[in-house]
Amino acid sequence: MTPLIEARRVWREYGGNIVLENVNARVNAGEFITIVGASGCGKTTFLRMLLGSDSPSRGELLLQGDTIPDEPGPDRGIVFQRYSVFSHLSVLQNVSLGLEFERSPLLARLFGTSRRNAESTARELLTTVGLGHALHRYPFELSGGMQQRLAIAQSLIKRPEILLLDEPFGALDPGIRKDMHELILGLWRETGVTVFMTTHDLEEGFYLGTRLWVFDKIRHDPDNPNRYGAHISYDIPLGKCQPEVLDEIAANRVKATHAGRSDCR
């Protein structure tokens, strides 16, 4: 069976800076992958390559056996930490916009019955994510958690195969984070979408995913921190792993911190 995503010896360098080196991975449809790692370790770069807004310098990144398109498309949805929603549109318009793009090529705007149809689809989805009471508000009238709910609904209206979440809950309060975890797990089970999510929070990563990736550098040159890139140093199927593994990762991080590198540089 062809995996949904396959990375074959993927490198990403910017000039002399090597961000990712030799990343290999196979991901099947329906997995929930959480990606942890210190800042600067290429988590976001990897996500951007899946999105299509960045491409590997070397190696291949395949989507269902073909090279991933080098621009974003409706089969791969994204939720950023911030700025994911359109400030000039109401909540309802933000979500129905995805349908308007698809059904009205020229004006990107629907009228009459087709508009009401699109809006009722959008309303249904918004009710699922818990925004049914705020349909006509503008994003600036929403809290951070509500904005992320909106951004998730906005992505899901396109029924993407892959949902990319780039530290989506990083800016939220702990209590609201918990709600968001339940929301995203529920949506994932319901839609069967494949999720890639980066996070700073190891526990969040363990709690949410079916599989946890740790991005880290294998080699480190203290005089030239950008000489070596990061790769997937742990690839752990969750639910099956031993608690010692978590301790081991945490211990490695402590070691790294003691060695004077709290991040990847």
Binding site: L51, S53, E71, P72, G73, P74, R76, G77, I78, F80, R82, Y83, S84, V85, F86, L97, G98, E100, F101, E102, P105, L106, L107, A108, R109, A151, Q154, S155, I157, K158, P160
Partner: peptide, 19 residues
């Protein structure tokens, strides 16, 4: 982020301009 988001919603260049 906004421009990328619009592309993941299936917008082409013209649709990004008008909406």
């Amino acid at each position: 982020e906004i421009l990328i988001k619009a592309q993941t919603l299936g917008a082409n260049t013209w649709q990004i301009v008008v909406r």
